[in-house]
Design a protein around this nucleic acid. Structure first.
Lengths: 115, 115
DNA sequence: AATAAATACCCAATTTTCTTATGTATATAA
DNA sequence: TTATATACATAAGAAAATTGGGTATTTATT
């Protein structure tokens, strides 16, 4: 249930950035990390996450290794070389976008954040 | 040509907020205002703008008045009462979303902007 | 005078990205 | 024993863009 629409297109950047910080993560771990960092306010749904991971892998930005943990399969994702490059690109695009958003929505305030 | 991806979902909020500040605006004026505020970095395409305006009008958030200026038609949009309410709602949702995005992408930095 | 660019509206086909709803399976907590 | 948590996945549909048209007037450029 619910509910966190807004700014479609940021999921890829979120995945890439988390992998930049964590070396390797598996899908479920990513959902939990996002939930934790946002105090439960953003919940990445599996229906969005897994297709996004598969797409990033197909584009050569992520590589995978499957591991068995307690009889359960885990699929770990890591950034490839081009994945690292693309992370930097997407982060700076998102940064620029958020600044522009502030210029539009916060007239008269010069943005000086963040991201 | 080009290139300003990463807006999806924020266009409605942008329209509403600009109308909150300007009392009434017409479509083309909105595209120019956004271009001006972002130094040309964000260009609202007409294919995105007009359907969005029509949808907001159909939802009762905007009202229109058509005027003739130099043999050309202009369609002015204004916020309705419920449009004003919805503007506040969408702004606070976007604010929350951007803060959460910063928590995810800027680990260790407490967000304190803006928007 | 002719042409391009700016102003001003619109729509339709397609694509991207997400939601919603499933499905499978094991481990742990109530 | 039943629900919740862990862990993967897919498919149908909706939402919101992009792309590529179309119409028409006014102003600037060549």
């Amino acid at each position: 249930m619910s509910n966190n629409n807004l700014i479609k297109g940021s999921l890829q950047t979120i995945i890439l950035k988390l992998l930049e910080e964590n070396e390797r993560m598996y899908g479920y771990e990513i959902t939990q990390k996002v939930k934790e960092l946002t105090a439960g306010e953003i919940k990445i749904t599996e229906g969005a996450l897994y297709p996004a991971l598969h797409k990033l892998e197909a584009e050569g930005l992520l590589s995978t290794e499957i591991e068995q943990v307690d009889n359960r399969v885990r699929k770990y994702y890591s950034l490839t070389k081009s994945g690292k490059t693309e992370t930097a690109t997407k982060m700076s695009e998102l940064h620029a976008f958020v600044e522009n958003l502030q210029r539009i929505l916060n007239p008269g305030v010069e943005p000086k954040l963040g991201i």
